[in-house]
Design a protein around this nucleic acid. Structure first.
Lengths: 112, 112
DNA sequence: CAGCATCCAAGGTGATACTG
DNA sequence: CAGTATCACCTTGGATGCTG
């Protein structure tokens, strides 16, 4: 649509690049997808559901998403401690995206 | 749509993971976005528009997308040669996704 | 112009061990 | 349970130089 002319264009500063940088870091989408589809989850459960992810990576992603304001971390100082992660309200805007992704994934790679 | 049950679940084999693996490799989304918004493009123009990408990476991405059937490569043996890349028809299904991404990027990171 | 071949640095990841 | 701290590795991307 936009028919801007020929610019050197460093995408790095554009909103889309910023968003994609977050979304495209490994595991992030699958992580968000889980929380989106299945609701709030504790660390261990999340890790189990994601399969091959390491605790380190999962922690990093969660910390990043927390810093970005995409997820909330709720710490319950019981014994043993319980930490629950919830999607921030704003992230619900990603819903159409998730649904679209699911649909396309199914159509393109679903059966064979 | 959820697979239900409590499985160790190695997402690696699922359609969504497959799709995300492609989409989340660096530059891929921005690349597709360009082709989507501005139509068929030649290698050099594409490179210039993407900014900081290297020829190596751009080539790799294009080759990958070609192998996946996402883009078509048209070689014109003129002097100098012209190679034009076009989105495959199926990739047009990504349209809603692209639009959504743009909207969200603008809303979340558009103004500061 | 549109790549390809190398080399190399950087960062990300996983495995492992340990703590509150 | 929910992490943190290390370490070693290994892929990945960028820079450079060359070709048809």
């Amino acid at each position: 649509m936009a028919k801007s002319k020929s610019q050197p264009a460093d995408n790095t500063h554009e909103p889309l690049a910023k968003l994609l940088k977050i979304l495209s870091s490994p595991w992030t989408m699958l992580l968000l997808h889980r929380l989106h589809m299945e609701g709030p989850k504790r660390f261990g459960e999340l890790k189990r559901r994601l399969g091959a992810i390491s605790t380190k990576t999962l922690t990093e992603r969660l910390r990043m998403l927390e810093a970005e304001g995409w997820v909330h971390r709720h710490y319950e100082p019981t014994v043993p401690p319980q930490v629950t992660y919830t999607l921030a309200e704003r992230v619900l805007e990603l819903d159409p995206l998730m649904v679209e992704l699911d649909r396309i994934a199914e159509r393109w790679y679903g059966r064979g």
